[in-house]
Design a protein around this nucleic acid. Structure first.
Length: 846
RNA sequence: GCGGGCGUGGUGGAAUGGUAGACACAUCAGACUUAAAAUCUGAAGGGCGUAUGCCCGUGGGGGUUCGAGUCCCCCCGCCCGCACCA
């Protein structure tokens, strides 16, 4: 059809950019700009979602490059993780081969996209050069007290013999083995992220270029609360039981004190009493996931111990062990107020414990049935009048008042609690970064010497039996103690792969440094100016990275001012695709590939069955609605794929991939080339339309720039469509049209760089359009001499008039009052009011 | 349960409180063609009307305003995150 031969054009320009080495990031006198897209996991092939992610980053990177910045735009691979091990178990290969093969494939698929990436900085997190530096970082964090070991309760898969993350426990069973998951106490490594909880929370306020949604999610995740902590005296004289509550105002409704099955008191009781031990074992069955907990019923065990109410020592409360109390929040013990807490009420009704009726005041008592009344914190339960010296107060102030009261009497104190827990990083897995410590019978836990890093993963491992191959490797784990030299054993746990992605952005600033970072390079390139990725990383990855930036500062690996590593964050939507399905004779869905259906007829081509179309679904191999970027590039070229994923939908929202849309995008790009070819040949003399085109050009520059700056790529694309149409229809002279077309090429260059280069060259542009300075709109051309004012009558548009831009209010009003539409409406009468908003609108109120 | 978001033509979506539907897809009509494809030109929110035009219209109901898709209140629907957090 056209001469838009992408198979020729695109590789040609990619080669030319490569030869000119355009995208190498260099420190210079220019201001820097660091744009980063969340690096991919090398799962096998790139996905159209990757194309959208990297295209957005590329638009920013190319735009900033044209705007005079020294740009860093790197790419790497988040390469450790379980899929590689699973593939090895399934096929008998090696995780390393599987991973590096996938990286080669995906790099090969990514390069044809024409991304302005500095490939010289590429690395994979499974490169020993990378994970060795990560081990060095770990040791420094260990030295700084940011890493420690403790016993913790985890999800344990007894068949695969490994710890499972909560996400890997499905309906209480291991996702791979199907075995009933157990709770197990294990000694694990932890990052002390909770020590920074307050800073991680308050610093969120500074992240004004992050989506509000993400900041809120992090805020809730960190979960700060304010409450009262106090001890219940035991009637038997044992150690007091410390409890924490955010609602001290409900203390007069207390009916029992509950402790977690993991509470030290419960443990000591179980040593003496087998019935307690049995009860705790019962509680520990089932996983720790939300689903498992939700379906679990309330279980309790009366310890026989009683405690004294802090406000009335003659009032004794029983102490129960209850399965719904979490050991790692607060103190692991609570006082229960059934009138105001549904869990407490359910528990009391089940075990026949007393329920004290609700009272907001002594004369306002509400009986409690089966539903607890949970008052908002602004509507505080009044118990305070019972006690002399405490004034009534309302709202959250009353909670503070009760805390003050307790503090004044010396039986309690106000404390802050965080929901955030320390980050358990130990994994009983092979394909991860080895934890660089040695366990010595004599010396205890001994850090590996830095000169011995990296602690490399052994290659000779087998996956034929469940469990961690490092644990059963014949020689790897047997090493001399780095301290005393006696035989010792290496730590066989590896690090959670989230560790790998928590500092890679810093490593990109000096990827070949023989320390984790180079402070000069980091000082120049950090922070990431624009980070782009999926909302699914809103909490964990971004929180961990914020923690790591702080930890790296503390250990001297990042300069000051980097504690918030991502200045701006953008979370892009998914690329979705319709699902075409029919039902089999049992009513189960059968999915069909897009090429197997006839969309016009709405049927399966081969069988004529009527299809049901489910629009805009997440892509999934099993639902047969995955779009392969390679096929798109082969059919339409990379620029079409890039143009399409930027069009139509706002970048933060999902965009549905449709064959029709992709074809339309391709047609438009072909038209741009055709228009450019026509213009290159034309020789019309300059004329009075030239000025109009220059104005349209200025407006296009202005609006496209605004669109790109504000992540309104869909709007920028719309303006480019409009500008193309304007140029195409313009009767201006050949030179004027050529100038406009060259600006169009520049404006399109960040989005469709190959086509832009082709058009630029066709019109005799010098060098690469990629390296041309971003065009500037002449402000004088952006303002019109006259403006069209809509005339409203009673707020409804009835007519419009053309007036000088700076026409005086009363002059406009005079014109309006003479307008036939207005005189007709007035019908000889006078308007109640005339509102003239200069340059905007006129409203005549009758 | 808690927190957040969204709701605009057949479709994706535009719209600093100021002309609702930019731009595009799909659709229809016309040109070119023996024909089709491609390309080009044009129409188009809904209703009534030959038409100037009139009425209705941004999930529903109320309010603020000269003026509301936009701000406020209530309701309905959908989506996302967290969740036995005391």
């Amino acid at each position: 059809m056209s001469q838009y031969d992408t198979a020729n054009i695109e590789p040609k320009w990619q080669d030319a950019w490569d030869k000119a080495d355009l995208f190498r990031a260099e420190r210079s006198d220019k201001p820097k700009y660091y744009v980063l897209e969340m690096f991919p996991y090398p799962s096998g092939r790139i996905h159209i979602g990757h194309v959208r992610n990297y295209t957005m980053g590329d638009v920013i990177a190319r735009y900033k490059m044209a705007s005079g910045f020294s740009v860093l735009h790197p790419m790497g691979w988040d390469a450790f993780g379980m899929p590689a091990e699973n593939a090895a178990m399934a096929s008998g290969g090696h995780p390393k081969d599987w991973t590096y093969d996938n990286i080669a494939t995906m790099r090969g698929q990514m390069k044809p996209l024409g991304l302005s990436i500095d490939w010289s900085r590429e690395f994979a997190t499974c490169d020993p050069e990378y994970y060795g530096q990560q081990q060095a970082l770990f040791l420094d964090m260990l030295g700084a007290g940011l890493v420690y070991r403790k016993n913790a309760t985890v999800n344990w898969d007894p068949v695969d013999m490994t710890v499972l993350a909560n996400e890997q426990v499905i309906d209480g069973k291991g996702w791979r083995s199907g075995a009933e998951v157990e709770r197990k106490d294990l000694t694990q490594w932890f990052f002390n992220i909770s020590s920074m909880a307050d800073d991680l929370l308050t610093s969120l306020d500074r992240l004004s270029d992050w989506p509000e949604k993400v900041r809120l999610m992090q805020e809730n995740w960190i979960g700060k609360s304010r409450g009262l902590q106090f001890g219940f005296e035991r009637s038997d004289g044992g150690d007091p039981i410390e409890v924490y509550t955010t609602r001290p105002d409900t203390l007069m409704g207390a009916s029992f004190v509950g402790i977690s099955p993991g509470h030290p008191l419960a443990k000591s009781l179980s040593a003496a009493n087998p019935a307690v031990a049995d009860f705790i074992a019962e509680c520990n069955k089932g996983g720790t996931t939300a689903e498992a907990l939700e379906t679990a019923s309330k279980l309790g065990f009366d310890t026989g111990i009683t405690v004294k109410h802090p406000l009335d020592p003659s009032w004794e409360l029983p102490v129960w062990i209850a399965n719904f109390i979490l050991m790692d929040y607060g103190t692991g013990a609570i006082f229960a107020c059934p009138a105001h807490d549904q869990r407490d009420l359910d528990f009391c009704r089940k075990y026949g414990l007393p329920v004290i009726d609700t009272f907001f005041a002594l004369d306002d008592v509400t009986p409690v049935g089966t539903e607890a009344f949970v008052p908002p914190k602004t509507d505080v339960v009044q118990w305070v009048n019972h006690f002399a010296g405490l004034d009534q107060a309302t709202g959250t102030e009353a909670i503070e008042t009760t805390i003050d009261f307790a503090e004044a009497r010396g039986w309690g104190r106000g404390v802050e609690q965080f929901r955030l827990r320390d980050w358990g990083l130990s994994r009983q897995r092979y394909w991860g970064c080895p934890i660089p410590v040695v366990h010595c019978d004599a010396c205890g836990v001994v850090p590996e010497k830095k000169e011995n890093l990296p602690v490399r993963l052994p290659d000779d491992v087998t996956f034929d039996v469940p469990g961690n191959p490092l644990d059963r490797h014949p020689t790897w784990r047997d090493v001399p103690c780095p301290a005393c030299g006696k035989p010792a054993k290496r730590e066989t746990d590896t690090m959670d792969t989230f560790v790998d992605s928590s500092w890679y952005f810093a490593r990109f600033t000096a990827p070949r440094a023989d320390t984790p970072t180079d402070l000069d390079d980091a000082a120049y390139w950090m922070n990431v100016d624009q980070y782009i990725g999926g909302i699914e990383h809103a909490i964990l990855h971004l929180l961990y990275s914020r923690f790591f930036a702080r930890a790296m500062q503390k250990t001297g690996h990042l300069p000051q001012g980097t504690e918030e590593p991502f200045n701006a964050l953008f979370t892009q939507g998914m690329v979705t695709h319709a699902i075409y399905q029919t039902k089999d004779d049992k009513g189960r869905p059968v999915y069909h590939l897009p090429e197997d259906v006839d969309l016009d007829a709405g049927t399966v081509t081969a069988t004529g069955e009527v299809i049901e179309i489910i629009p805009s679904a997440k892509m999934s191999k099993s639902k047969k609605n995955v779009v392969d970027p390679q096929a798109i590039i082969a059919a339409f070229g990379a620029d079409t794929a890039r143009w399409f994923v930027l069009s139509d939908s706002p970048p933060e929202r999902d965009v549905e991939w449709t064959a029709a849309g992709a074809e339309a995008a391709h047609k438009h790009l072909a038209r741009v080339l055709r228009v450019a070819q026509d213009i290159a040949k034309a020789d019309r003399p300059a004329n009075d339309k030239d000025a109009d085109l220059a104005k349209a050009t200025a407006r296009a520059i202005h609006e496209v720039t605004e669109g790109v700056e504000g992540f309104g790529f869909n709007k920028a694309v719309a303006k480019l469509y409009e500008f193309t149409n304007t140029i195409n229809k313009s009767d201006a002279g050949a030179n004027a049209r050529k100038d406009a077309m060259k600006v169009l090429a520049q404006l399109m260059a960040p989005m469709t760089p190959h086509l832009a280069e082709e058009v630029w060259a066709l019109l005799g542009g010098d060098g690469f359009v990629t390296t041309m300075p971003w065009p500037k709109a002449d402000p004088a051309l952006l303002v019109d001499d006259t403006v069209t004012l809509p005339i409203q009558i009673n707020g409804k548009k009835k007519a419009e008039i053309e007036v000088a831009k700076d026409a005086a209010k009363d002059a406009v009003e005079a014109l309006v009052m003479d307008h036939p539409a207005v005189t007709k409406a007035l019908n000889g009468g006078a308007p109640k009011k005339v509102i003239v908003v200069p340059g905007r609108i006129v409203n005549v109120v009758l």
